[in-house]
Nucleic acid binder design. Sequence first.
DNA 1: ATGAAAGCGCTAACAG
DNA 2: CTGTTAGCGCTTTCAT
Lengths: 312, 312
Amino acid sequence: MLNNSPRVAPATRARVEKAIADLGYTPNPLARSLSTGRTDSISILVPFFTSESVVQRLRGIVDVLNERGREVVLANVETLEQRDRAVAAVTGVARPSGLIVISLPLDGDSMVSLRSSGVPVMAVDVELEGCPSITVDDEAGGMLATKYLIDGGHTRIAFVGDSEDQPLGFASSRGRRKGYQRALGDAGIAVDPELVRLAPFGRMTAHQITAELLALPSPPTAIFAASDTQALGVIEAIRNAGLEVPGDISVIGFDDIEVAPYVGLTTVRQPLVESGRRAATSLMTLVEGGQVTSTMLDLEVVERDTVQRIGG
Amino acid sequence: MLNNSPRVAPATRARVEKAIADLGYTPNPLARSLSTGRTDSISILVPFFTSESVVQRLRGIVDVLNERGREVVLANVETLEQRDRAVAAVTGVARPSGLIVISLPLDGDSMVSLRSSGVPVMAVDVELEGCPSITVDDEAGGMLATKYLIDGGHTRIAFVGDSEDQPLGFASSRGRRKGYQRALGDAGIAVDPELVRLAPFGRMTAHQITAELLALPSPPTAIFAASDTQALGVIEAIRNAGLEVPGDISVIGFDDIEVAPYVGLTTVRQPLVESGRRAATSLMTLVEGGQVTSTMLDLEVVERDTVQRIGG
DNA sequence: ATGAAAGCGCTAACAG
DNA sequence: CTGTTAGCGCTTTCAT
């Protein structure tokens, strides 16, 4: 009756509400939860330490969830074990009202658990079977970046991205690589497998594989990094080798994280904070029983100082 | 009895534990919480969007808390209302096992509520009456930075920091300003009040007050910013005015956030992630009934490219 | 349309 | 030292 049941006389409702106000009554969420098996909070699954972009998305999410008075439970997922524990927590006896998954591919078992738990799920920067998501078109983004390089007169273009076999890796790198290859193909440039280098996400790892690229008999004149964080590592490696950016080698990143302007990094911008805001907003309509569709956010190249146009 | 009461015969314990294992029994945290009025989770109060440094500390905290299997509830506090709601949530019927407050000064009322709730509290980057804290010596840090500038031959040194009258502002700026003034005094340099500029935390605001500084009849030759984020704004403003860093004006920051190396920012480094790790670890011993004392982390100047030594 | 009562699964107080 | 029982405060089902 306290829960807005429609089958209650207005008079009674008024009487009760007066009493509520008079007594300063506040419902006990714990008791409700014990009874219903569900919490008022929203859980977020994050591959937290991996990326600045994740933090930005998180900002957007926490922003709107706090606005709506929702408790935010943060679960950091860096290992398979952590993932399973997080999923167990979400599907267990203290289910949250909803779940947001950031940049984290989930396995079939996890998805089955989630689905049968009935907890509404929103995915951000990742596609989850049967869940609405907020993403960007990574392949289109990869093409955008690569074309930008090609238009600049580059033909020997390398790709530095994430390993594609890691269960917890960023899935977006794969799409960007595809876009890279497609743009190359469209331009009639042969894809040299030697120029595609993959490593677990991180600045350091990107640094390392870039060094390999530079040691090639015929090194690239431009590098497309699957993320700005990786682009940072790429630039370090180039400078470490005594080469200049963009004088000797051009670099384009992806994301447009906060540091990008300071480094003068040319990159493909995606609305990071906005993706979080959208995801949170959509999740709330899901929680309230509404319908939500997946949406793709826009991408654009931000021209700065790490790409040089060379004589075509 | 299921809670490790010491008053139980080993035989019985073994029997019960076998049953537990056999039945795949898992305790229901919700029921426990309803009964005890306390949750297993740890709450974190963050002035979230204000600063990169806060995110770093958060990384450290989430890292150890997840390791220990603790649920982390994140509360963003940007307004007085949010602060009060957050405190109410923590002291209310669903009390967490512990609370960590990052960089957020709390008023007397909040502290009284917290104390009477009995929830253990750890403070990070802020002093909270009666709570152990992980901090740095801001005044010493301010002296360190200012002395570094003085040693470089500067005498006309400005300070760009946070407004000190804002209830939710960063408290650390005040200490750093004091250190700045003390170092100046120690060096026999008169403190020119015109050179001390305060504004609400942020890059933009720092940018603005720096512009004022530059418009002075006799502008400073060096600026000490209370944080790296602000230092970034300071540098922007200087370059915007057609001046060079450090050619025309030197800049030193505070924190050593991730972007600092990319910008070549000379700064006073404090161990951000470590502060979070320590706070979380200490909180856990507090939660387990242990004793904890406040600790101060070390500070050091990281020399990079934004400070120029001038002819003394 | 409204009220009464039976859990939800645990803790804590109390009897044995 | 162990077994029993009465709540915790809500939701939900079943009478009225």
